[in-house]
């Protein structure tokens, strides 16, 4: 591969977990600019935990997360790096006391010098990108689960982040909306030039959008494969990977 271009995200020797339980260890991978990088693995294997270590919510036991070569968990860098992120949480995690418009607007109010009017326009744009124009003044509890996911996405892209993290974006969505979200992710990559990390076990999405991936395994507590999902399906010898990528059909069966 191209050696010269620095990866946007690099994870080196990372051990993550809670209190005294190690969930994943010895993780090493790189995410290049413009990648749609998939983190896959069975339910409960530690995908969300890895994500938390990458976005600053759970201190890793060991190892480094580097953004453009800068160590994220060193205090001095953290705040400034975080402002480059957009995160869509598994549950949406909208701020329940704020309307959808306020949810999207908050980061604009905090980190830009836009006027009220300008902010309103940007918010309207972001909401219409996810198909929620006209819902500005509703509160999160007044909309459906799928709409909450999309509103969460609108919030995640409020500041046009150059790195976007998705935790199970299509879980709980109907096939049509899930497809729409996949398309949206591709567009975000192309239009914003964003680098995207997606945690998912939705096979359709994995193959539709992912150009690089890692596979986490709960038993060995580490990553057991990496590469583009299509290559993994074609070339991987590991029965666990094949089983996952073929919806549980055991190899040879």
């Amino acid at each position: 591969m191209e050696k010269n271009s620095q990866p946007v995200i690099e994870v080196r020797g990372l051990d993550v977990g809670y209190d005294d339980d190690i969930v994943m260890q010895g993780l090493n991978f790189k995410v290049n600019k413009g990648d749609i990088f998939i983190v896959m693995g069975m339910s409960g294997c530690g995908k969300s935990t890895l994500l938390k270590a990458m976005i600053g919510l759970q201190q890793p036991f060991k190892g480094q997360v580097l953004y453009d070569g800068k160590d994220f968990w060193l205090d001095a860098e953290q705040q400034s790096i975080m402002q480059r992120f957009g995160v869509l949480y598994q549950s949406g995690a909208l701020w329940s006391s704020l309307t959808l418009a306020e949810n999207v607007a908050l980061s604009l109010q905090l980190y830009t010098k836009l006027s009220r009017e300008q902010i309103r326009e940007v918010v309207a744009l972001k909401l219409s990108l996810v198909g929620l124009e006209g819902y500005e003044d509703l509160y999160p509890f007044e909309i459906s689960g799928g709409m909450r996911k999309r509103a969460g996405l609108a919030r995640a892209i409020a500041l046009d982040p150059d790195i976007i993290f998705f935790d199970e974006p299509s879980a709980g969505l109907d096939p049509v909306n899930a497809k729409m979200l996949d398309d949206l992710i591709l567009q975000l990559r192309d239009v914003l030039g964003a680098t995207i990390v997606v945690v998912t076990h939705e096979l359709a999405s994995i193959f539709a959008i992912g150009n690089n991936s890692i596979f986490l395994d709960a038993d060995t507590k580490t990553m057991i494969a990496s590469g583009s999902p299509k290559d993994l399906l074609a070339d991987s010898k590991d029965p666990r990977v094949i089983q996952f990528l073929t919806r549980g059909n055991k190899p040879g069966a």
């Binding site: 976005i55 600053g56 975080m82 402002q83 995160v87 995690a93």
Partner: peptide, 10 residues
């Protein structure tokens, strides 16, 4: 996870 969402916003 609303508090997490605040944290990752800095």
């Amino acid at each position: 996870e609303e508090i997490d969402a605040y944290k990752t916003l800095g």
